[in-house]
Design a protein around this nucleic acid. Structure first.
Ligand SMILES: [Mn+2]
Length: 412
DNA sequence: CAAGTAAACTACAT
DNA sequence: TCTCGGTTTACTTG
């Protein structure tokens, strides 16, 4: 979900630009962000397990647009799920399944146009579709990489290492990871909005986050809620900014809440744990280095963590499980030499499925050609969930994401 | 009223 | 195997 409300508060420093202002730049592109847009146009074909080149054509159209400005794309695709990120995903999955069922029953009663509206809401973007794009990238000599975990951290790593000059994505998280040049809302006329990290200084009260250290930025979004923390109830970006402005540490802020009776010690402990994991994930999430050809961390692990047993255990359990070279088990590994960097290289080039390294990754379109009968759809992978909902239309809301505590605050 | 929350909408392509 | 996001609008709550 990114950071709710962040881009809105950054409106004063968002610049409307056109692609000629990015002439001959190298830009990382969030592959799944484009795939999610591209697959809307072929939701029916995806639903019926039919071959389609619609989503590839979307990519080609946009790549050609970039080419006219001599912009060099570097596609970055998400890899495996990182376990720090939990909660909202399962509810998204159940919603997709419900929408698919609803679409099918509408289709069966002849209401095809209405059915497709539900198919659009149930589109399931898979690594096999990413592989279809990857095959094209290979044939055209376009740079690409499959991240070991989130594309977010991988793209920021590429920018930090000077391999790209900016990042095309819709995700506000990138700025918290440390992105310096974010390009959002690119349309097919070559217009976009640019957010530069250096412009944070120009923001004014009551949201002058230019004065915040990177650590304080992470604290602020953790308090208000982000991909890695559910946040404290009744705290959004506005209050999170105020509490962070006091200069206090997370421990100090939570203590104030407990003392004033706004938070129980149990809730504070749960949140504190979440925060430690989130803070590490933002800083040290594992990425793949295309120059070193091995798994590395987004930023170098500081001595503060290295020489503190407890802190380093927290750190290594927040940055992602990797493959053990000897046992081939996917687990938390602290010793770099125990990591199967070669297998992670195969994942990074799209040879292996990032969530299941023993499986070769094959383009969706080739899969359907080869086997004739496919079992790649959502109802096969999640047959238990699919069957759980007796058809049709058991519409009840499902929420997993609930706040840790419940604060009662007033403006003062 | 202002801040937070939740649900609805959009996309694409034509 | 298990998946990207933001914006708008209407509501609740202190
Ligand atoms: Mn993100």
């Amino acid at each position: 979900m990114g950071v709710t409300g962040l881009l809105t508060k950054l409106k004063p420093i968002q610049k409307q630009i056109t692609l000629d202002q990015l002439y001959s730049k190298r830009l990382a592109i969030d592959g799944y962000s484009w795939l999610h847009k591209a697959t809307i146009g072929c939701s029916y074909e995806l639903m019926m397990d039919l071959n389609t080149n619609t989503y590839l054509k979307y990519f080609i159209k946009r790549i050609n647009m970039l080419k006219r400005y001599n912009i060099k794309p570097y596609f970055v695709f998400d890899g495996a799920k990182i376990n720090v990120k939990e909660g909202i995903e399962s509810s998204r999955l159940e919603k997709r399944i419900l929408n698919k069922k609803r679409g099918i029953s509408l289709w069966d009663t002849g209401k095809h146009l209405e059915a497709i509206e539900y198919f659009k809401k149930s589109v399931d973007v898979t690594p096999q579709m990413a592989k279809c794009i990857i095959d094209y990238c290979r044939s055209e000599n376009i740079d690409y990489i499959v991240a070991p975990f989130e594309a977010d951290s991988q793209m920021v790593y590429l920018e930090k290492e000077g391999l790209v000059d900016g990042i095309i994505s819709e995700d506000s998280d990138l700025l918290i990871f440390g992105c310096k040049n974010l390009i959002t809302k690119l349309n097919d006329r070559g217009e976009a909005r640019q957010i530069e990290r250096k412009d944070f200084n120009m923001l004014e009260e009551p949201f002058s986050i230019g004065k915040f250290s990177p650590e304080q930025l992470r604290l602020m979004v953790c308090l208000s809620g982000c991909d890695y923390t559910k946040g404290l109830g009744h705290i959004g970006l506005t209050f999170a900014y105020m509490f962070t402005s006091t200069g206090k540490s997370i421990e100090g802020i939570l203590e104030d809440f407990i003392e004033s009776g706004k938070l129980t010690t149990e809730s504070a402990e749960i949140f504190l744990k979440e925060y430690y994991f989130a803070d590490c994930s933002f800083q040290f999430q594992r990425v793949f280095s295309p120059t070193q050809q091995k798994v590395v961390t987004l930023n170098d692990i500081t001595s503060e963590y290295l020489y503190d047993f407890k802190k380093s255990r927290i750190l290594y359990s927040s940055i992602g499980k990797v493959i053990n070279k000897r046992t081939r088990i996917v687990e938390y590994i602290e010793n770099d030499e125990d990591i199967d960097h070669e297998m992670h290289r195969l994942i990074s080039i799209g040879e292996r499925d990032p969530s299941n390294f023993q499986t070769r990754l094959v383009s969706r379109e080739n899969l359907i050609n080869e086997s004739g009968e496919t079992q790649n759809s959502i109802q096969f992978y999640y047959s238990n969930l699919w069957n759980k909902y007796a058809s049709p239309l058991p519409l009840h809301p499902i929420f997993n994401k609930t706040p840790v505590g419940s604060l009662s605050l007033s403006c003062n």
